[in-house]
Design a protein around this nucleic acid. Sequence first.
DNA 1: TTGTAGGCGTTATCAT
DNA 2: ATGATAACGCCTACAA
Lengths: 334, 334
Amino acid sequence: MVTLKELAKLLNVSVSTVSKALSDSSEIGENTKRRVTELANELNYKPNRIAQQLKTSKTKVVGVVVPSLMNPFFAEVVHGIETTLENHNYDMMVCISNESLEKEQRSFDLLSTGSVDGFIVAVARETQTNHSIKHFENVGRTTPIVMFDRVLNDVACSKVVVDDFETVYQATKYLIEEENRKHLLLISNIEELSVGKQRIKGYAKAIEEANLKSSVLKLDDEINPDELILEHLKKNLNIDAIISIDHITGIMALNMVKKIDKKVPDDISVIGFDYVDSKFVSSPKISVVNQKGFKIGETSAKLLLDELNSKSRVKHKTIMVKSLLSLNGTTQNK
Amino acid sequence: MVTLKELAKLLNVSVSTVSKALSDSSEIGENTKRRVTELANELNYKPNRIAQQLKTSKTKVVGVVVPSLMNPFFAEVVHGIETTLENHNYDMMVCISNESLEKEQRSFDLLSTGSVDGFIVAVARETQTNHSIKHFENVGRTTPIVMFDRVLNDVACSKVVVDDFETVYQATKYLIEEENRKHLLLISNIEELSVGKQRIKGYAKAIEEANLKSSVLKLDDEINPDELILEHLKKNLNIDAIISIDHITGIMALNMVKKIDKKVPDDISVIGFDYVDSKFVSSPKISVVNQKGFKIGETSAKLLLDELNSKSRVKHKTIMVKSLLSLNGTTQNK
DNA sequence: TTGTAGGCGTTATCAT
DNA sequence: ATGATAACGCCTACAA
């Protein structure tokens, strides 16, 4: 590994001269600067980040902890984060909590020990159901944290959330008013998550306003969610609309609707949440609520960078990213 | 940040005593050890990884560089890597090359400077078409690299590949022999990648053996691949099978087949590559070739860990992971 | 059994 | 304009 010391020896100058020359300090003569930079390039010198970090106690790395990368929403958010950090010369370390509290804690332990300057996190399912917030509080004392999507209200930190309530409220209202649906079923496998609760509330409000009957099918932790959906559909043949509030059950519903010989969207409307690029979803086109993962990642990263780069303690912000409602092909930005 | 120094001061012993006590050195008396560990726990002392790294020049971090996380195959591989590293107490830093040579180089630059002990990489598209390998060679001199899926033959390092040739050969043969297909179209948007070439060869061999006519539709860099597919289908109405060798065009083909009023799989068989969990793909069920991303990630990580933990220079290995062929619902492990 | 000293590569301060 | 020195936090001979 080429070090400042080596360069110094080869050039017969001191280490500090080399260091200053490379950082283009005004104290160093043009001549020396040229000699130094030339040799540095030639030998392909790269400053040792670890030593730099030790010295400055800044790592220029952001820790990202997400429940899973197999969920396309999170993959998209991470992509948004990455792009933003890249533009500001930061790196990221991604850790996967796998929805487990313990792995989330370990990730924070690991990363918080000098490895990263700040965190961006979507809270694991288990963490959210257990209300375990100690690891966030400990770390948060010294290191900025930004939470997105899966958010813990009791933790004092910046947050980026989706307007879950409003989005599902609007979508439900649309089905009722524009498509004249009367028997709307909501299905979900994220009932116990903060986002899930908000979304269900949005549904409930629209239903109530229209004086209809609420009907919610919760599929958390079920082994065979599709079976349950099918059963439910068979028992309730009057259902004319299905609203899925996660990224999976909507697709399942689509398949099950076909099994009972009904047509989408003629007999039953189906709305799903954020399943990959709708271009790649097989027809019949499911209506999709796009959570704009990229935007959320971007926003989270910017928020964190702000906190990192302002010396004065910034006040924590909560930013709401508006969802993009895409119903029946028409994309309407609210 | 709690440091050894602080602990030492509070306990009125020297820094080295504390250090040794915490690493359970035999040189330190039981009494002192207890006092030290108790205080350390109380103050929640965590060794500063950065300082450790500076000293040992080991980071216990693996750099993972992938073209994208929005491709579910890569997401799955990363998941496999993560799980394996986790079990061996390693961390990972994921960087996204975005299929760009320049970003890939930058990622390697960044990470290779003291941040990681080794690399796992799937080569960016641009890198593979340009045959740019200098950044791999430079890094490879001092740091082990494992390539997976997208592989560069000219780079001397360990590799994990899929049996692309064999898989597509078998799939094509299946369509010909079991489903009596005569006009098999292969579509691809990864024609210029190593994996794409292998897959096309597998197709070609099966076609040749059956004395059929080869028909390949290349969609690299096309703006409207689905349009092209549709056009091609309209012009060649005798096509009775479509083999997509990437994770996107298969779905597109499905949609386009419907537009020309044919039925899958009655009129036309469709086989795609590795599109997420097939459970979640809308019917009609597309036959899917599962690349077993998790296994590939696992294998890559193990290979790298082997190299990292053996002092003697290990010889580079190339491991082939067999694909799982899943045709018409029946999953057949070859 | 414990402590001292030196060094990993860098940067910042102070002296020349 | 350049150089010497100390310090970041940790580890480890070696000395006491």
